[in-house]
Nucleic acid binder design. Structure first.
Lengths: 199, 199
DNA sequence: CCACTCATGTACCACTTGGTACATGAACCA
DNA sequence: TGGTTCATGTACCAAGTGGTACATGAGTGG
């Protein structure tokens, strides 16, 4: 998700610059309930410019949601073959908390049908599963179907624990819980470590 | 969470009646970005009444968040000593999806600091852990500290999978993933089933 | 019957909202 | 130089916002 931060530094066209600034603002204190004027003031422009470059308020929100979603995908793309513990170290880094707050804010808005966020839901699960399933399959020697189940569980655990982390701030405690899950998964990969499932 | 539905039927005082109606509305299509007048129209009253009975818009939102949170706690209270699979059957029931969408909507809003939702975060984790840890401790013979770690993981898995479920609607697929987690946990309770952790 | 409280409706307030009209400036190309 | 395009600022609009003032019932206890 830290591509977003990077993105904020490489922007030439005004629209890109505004989008990057809006994204940065979105990560600090939310964006969904800001007015165009509030947002414009916060990022040093006028609401006129936001409308000029994004057409409408919804166009702006859509663009932001899309950018977040794109940053996500970029993040996923480079996750292949990394180890679970390092992954958690990465995602639980306080530097990423603002981006993750924004992610869950948009997720929540999308769940209640806010316009411009539909794409969010359809890309919330599958791309992540597809991104990490191959690594699991390769490293644990699981068939594709099982690896996808494992990947889906890993995504859920990570998100659930991130919700915990963002609510409590207790990085150490949550990390300990994550470590427990990883040991389960590792032992589960060796099918003799627990009773084999017939599902 | 289905206490909320129940709550909607037992309301005599006008404030309670309005709150129940607002809650019901909140579960169908969100509430955070509705105006008082929109909401009033949707639940068959006037924005004047909402202000009269809740003092302000924020008072209303706070009351709704509090009610959701209270319903949560009520739900938690009767979770003791229930089995994980039954728990998942319960939470994944499509009847509860609206309530869960509302839960995640409020969670997201609380994460970005929306006023009136602070209580949400402070009660998002600990009460749940405290509610189910004793059952885990008892049934698996774990010391309290370990049982709380397990409980925290269980809460995270459930929420992560609910996010998946609400985004995809794929109840069967997500249930299968949950089943995988349950088997991990069950084997983990027997400490010889995986290498013992020294954390 | 009167006084009082609770609930509700009507009308209004100042302010903000998303969006538009229009002028202006800067850059570039003829 | 003049025309054209992109970016931006100023001013405005109708509509909607949260909130308030005030009148009016409905019910209740004296």
């Amino acid at each position: 998700m830290n591509q977003m931060v990077h993105l904020a530094m490489t922007a030439s066209q005004p629209r890109e610059r505004l989008l990057a600034a809006a994204l940065e603002q979105a990560m600090h204190g939310g964006i969904a309930d800001m007015s165009l004027r509030e947002l414009a003031r916060a990022i040093g422009t006028s609401h006129r410019m936001l409308l000029y470059h994004f057409g409408s308020r919804e166009g702006l929100l859509t663009a932001v949601a899309f950018a977040v979603e794109e940053a996500q995908r970029a993040e996923v793309a480079q996750l292949v073959a990394v180890d679970a513990r390092r992954l958690w170290q990465h995602f639980s880094d306080p530097l990423l908390w603002p981006a993750e707050r924004l992610f869950f804010e948009l997720y929540g808005q999308a769940l209640v049908g806010r316009p411009g966020t539909e794409e969010f839901l359809s890309n919330a699960i599958e791309p992540w599963v597809s991104a990490i399933a191959p690594a699991i399959s390769r490293e644990a020697g699981l068939d594709e179907r099982t690896a996808r189940l494992e990947a889906r569980l890993a995504v859920a655990v990570t998100r659930g624990l991130l919700l915990d982390l963002l609510a409590t701030g207790d990085r150490q405690g949550v990390t300990e819980v994550f470590e427990r899950y990883v040991r389960y998964a590792e032992s589960g990969y060796r099918p003799d470590a627990h009773q084999p499932g017939q599902s």
